[in-house]
Each structure stands twice: as structure tokens, then as C-alpha cells.
Design a binder for these strands. Sequence first.
DNA 1: CCGCGGGCCTGAGAGC
DNA 2: TGCTCTCAGGCCCGCG
Length: 275
Amino acid sequence: MRGVKILKVVCRRDGLRFPFPDAFAQRLKGRTIEALGRRAKYLLVDLDDGCVLIMHLGMSGSFRVEAETVVAPGNFHHERSTDRTHDHVVFYLSNGVRIVYNDPRRFGFMDLTTRLELNQHASFRNLGAEPLGNAFGPEELALACAGKRTNLKAVLLDQRVVAGLGNIYVCEALHRAGLSPNRSASTLAKQSGAPTERARRLHEAIRDVLTEALAAGGSTLRDHRLTDGSLGYFQHAFRVYDREGAPCSRAPCKGSVERLIQSGRSTFFCRSCQR
DNA sequence: CCGCGGGCCTGAGAGC
DNA sequence: TGCTCTCAGGCCCGCG
């Protein structure tokens, strides 16, 4: 998409989770895409007029790349039958490619802002640090935990603390760190001026699990695909997520994976080695 | 300000 | 086969 002009945008409904902004399609028409980026779970498209297109996939959003020219059948090893029922937005590009946004549950959204205002946008104003960036370390994690009345699961899911962890990677990081999802967050706060050993362990576990998951192409529970259509395979490396009843994989732990509900969402953990 | 529960949507899978 | 129920990768909002 980089360096390519947007010839036309077609919205096939009024909005997704939120209504599209005023004159959304018209404002994108004729713009050239200067850069593509990401912050937390938001996709960012820099346009040549200083505007930024913000997009979020929600739970079930995806993009499909369609070439103008018909490719001989069989060339796309991974191509699947395509349900166009939930194709909500189509970007027509000057290089003959169409980018189709599909989202059955419509929890995703698209919005427009400017580069100057991006950090004040409602979705960005309160975002915490990138988990793999230099601004996130054991110190920052310990600081965020100080005085928090809630548990570790909720803290890690809170995008204001660290931005980009979801349910899977929170469960996996807590297991790797040997910390219970029910543990009070405040017990990770600094003691006598230094981050606790627990905060260091959790920070390292977060980085490890994200780095490994990225290298594995992410986790394909049902929809997720890499850009070439292949499947992520980190789901095969899950130690707790969606493994209720399975033996704990941490030797020599003899526990088993349990499921519980925290703030309405499933948590998977081993109570014998996560304390 | 904080934390919690409910809500937004559709579809897949289990159980009957 | 088909019905009903539960659950799902995320995030926002209103309430207390």
C-alpha cells in the first residue's frame, strides 16, 4: 500500500462498532499512502495530507488483498472460500489492488485524525507503553502495580498499563512468571526502592511470550492468518490458554490447568505453580 | 479516580 | 436435522 494512491473507498454500511466519521470515504479519496504503522492493537495509515487513518480489527476483523488481474487457480496455496457477507469497506488502490475489510462481529472500527492530534485521540490518550519497547521495564511495571486494588490479570489486560496484551498472552505470561492471576497487583510494587523479583519475572515473561508468539506468526484460534494466508502456530505452544484439565507443562509441577472467570473473561492457570 | 458488570455483534460448537 | 445454550482473540460505558 505504501506510495499508492487511494482511488475510491466504498463503505457498505454506516459504521462498524462506531459510525464512520463524516465524509469518511470522500476524505480518503485521492490521498496517497505515505506510511503504515501500528500502536498497541491499532493500525495506522499516514496519508499525504497529514491525516491518519486509524483502524482496529476488534475480535473478528481481517483484511483481504484482491488483485485486479485474475490469477490462475492454484497459485494461492492457502486461499479459502470467501464469505463476502461481512465485507464492510473496500479500498480501491491506484496499483490495481483492492483491500477489503471483513468483520462479522463488527467490533472493529475506523476513524480519521491528524498526525498532530493522534496522541490526543480518545483511543490513544491513555495508552501505556509498548511491551517490547524501551519504555516498558520492570520499574514501569512495578510502578503501575503500586496502589492497585485489583489483581494481576486485570492489570495486564489494562491497556493503560501496557498496551497490546490480550487474554491469551496475559494468561501465558502469568504462567511463565509463576504468578497467580488472582494475586493482588500491589504485591508487585517496589520494595525499598527496587522493583520486586516478581515484577522482573513478569516483565521478562511478557517479553518472552510476545517475542516467541511473533516469531511463530501469532496464534490461530480460528481466523488469524499471516499476510500470505498461512496459519500462525503459537497456539501449539500454549501452556495454559484453552487447556483446561491438561497437566501443567512446567516440570516438575504436578498440577493441572484450571479455568476461572475474571471480569467476565476466561483465565487459564495452574494453581499449584502460579502463586 | 477506580473497578466491575454489562453490552456491543455474529458464528461455531456442544448437547439434547 | 434442528433447536437452544454457551462461548469467543476487544474495548467502551455507566454505575457505585
